[in-house]
Computed example of a mutant assay.
Amino acid sequence: MRKLIIGCGYVGLTVAQEWVKQGHQVSALTRSENNAEKFLSAGIQPVLGDITQPESLESLPESDTVLYAVGFDRSSDKSRHEIYVTGLESALKVLKQRTQKVIYLSSTSVYGQTAGEWVDESSVCEPERENGQVCLEAEQLFDQHGFLSTSSTQSAAARAVILRLAGIYGPGRLLARMEQIRAGEPLAGHPDAWLNLIHLADIVQTVLKIDTNIHLYDRYLVSDSRPITRWEYYETLARLLKAPEPRFESTVPGEISRKSTRFNSTERAAGLNKRCNNKRLREELGVSLTFPTIAEGLPDAIENG
């Protein structure tokens, strides 16, 4: 079968490699001649183009499945809105009649809950930060263009499935934090705030599962099975690295314990993020997570990083 990757980075490239192993014909959009050469050597057919240049998208090939996994390039001169919304809309206009299924990687930042509430696919999305607002606006394009089963007008031949990804980790994605922990440098942020994470391998298996002929919902929240606090995450990482106990920027000088953090009652009640419920992912989609918690996932990420 024919597969197309738009956004062939950390997640997209890994999915592309799996599709190649399965014997599919895989193409990937890229702006870079260097990346095009790397894709060719990996058995991936490069397609030169840029989502922010609509005319370049006319060369997108027909495909059975498209994985849209575009991330924000901080070195680019384009804004988040130009990349996530304007670029996506340009791509959807072309993809409408050129594919059967679009798997779109979104983010749990579309949720605006900040007091430790549990959220799932039915939860209200009222993000306060720009990143979440832009991601939500991008998601809404699929409804506007008729890609969803719940769209009021089915104007697209393709069906879309939106994956709201928690914080991605895995091999090669921990290096900066590992060095910071080893050096005993103070960490930013609230130690009691919740983290929702998902290992690269489980994102990939979710994408592959969705790329089968099964009943699908329009959206899935893709997170592991146990939200953790920032403190627990960094304490676990430090222990695995045999590094000093983590400390946060609010810590009293000379002390490194979590107990020494200075937050008043108002500060403790706010900014705790949300907790993601992955029930639909596990029970409806039937994904059995390889790394259901960081207890299994962090050792793998460190060892293979």
Rank of each mutant, 00 (worst) to 15 (best):
V124G: 08
V124T: 14
C125D: 10
E126C: 08
E126Q: 13
P127H: 09
P127L: 03
P127G: 06
E128R: 14
E128P: 01
E130L: 15
E130A: 13
E130G: 08
E130C: 12
E130N: 10
E130D: 14
E130F: 09
N131V: 13
N131M: 13
G132V: 09
G132T: 07
G132P: 06
Q133K: 15
V134N: 01
V134Q: 03
V134T: 06
L136A: 07
E137N: 04
E137T: 12
A138F: 06
A138E: 00
A138L: 07
A138D: 01
A138I: 03
E139Q: 05
Q140R: 15
L141P: 07
L141G: 10
L141A: 07
D143P: 00
Q144R: 14
Q144H: 09
Q144N: 14
H145I: 02
H145A: 09
G146M: 05
G146V: 03
G146E: 02
G146I: 07
G146N: 04
G146Y: 06
G146W: 03
F147A: 00
F147W: 14
S149L: 06
S151H: 06
S151Q: 00
S152Q: 15
S152K: 15
Q154L: 04
Q154S: 01
S155I: 08
A156E: 07
A156C: 02
R159N: 05
V161R: 01
V161H: 02
V161F: 08
V161P: 03
I162Y: 06
I162R: 01
I162Q: 05
L163P: 02
L163I: 10
L163V: 08
L163D: 09
R164E: 02
R164M: 03
L165K: 07
A166I: 02
A166R: 02
A166N: 09
G167H: 02
G167Y: 04
G167C: 00
I168L: 15
I168P: 09
G170K: 15
P171T: 08
P171M: 13
G172D: 10
G172N: 13
G172P: 07
G172I: 09
G172H: 11
G172W: 07
L174V: 09
L175G: 04
A176C: 00
E179N: 10
Q180E: 12
Q180Y: 07
Q180T: 10
I181Y: 05
R182H: 01
R182P: 02
A183P: 00
A183S: 14
G184L: 10
G184R: 12
E185S: 10
P186Y: 13
P186T: 12
L187Y: 06
L187N: 01
L187H: 05
A188S: 12
A188V: 07
G189W: 12
H190G: 03
H190P: 08
H190L: 13
A193Y: 06
A193M: 13
W194Q: 10
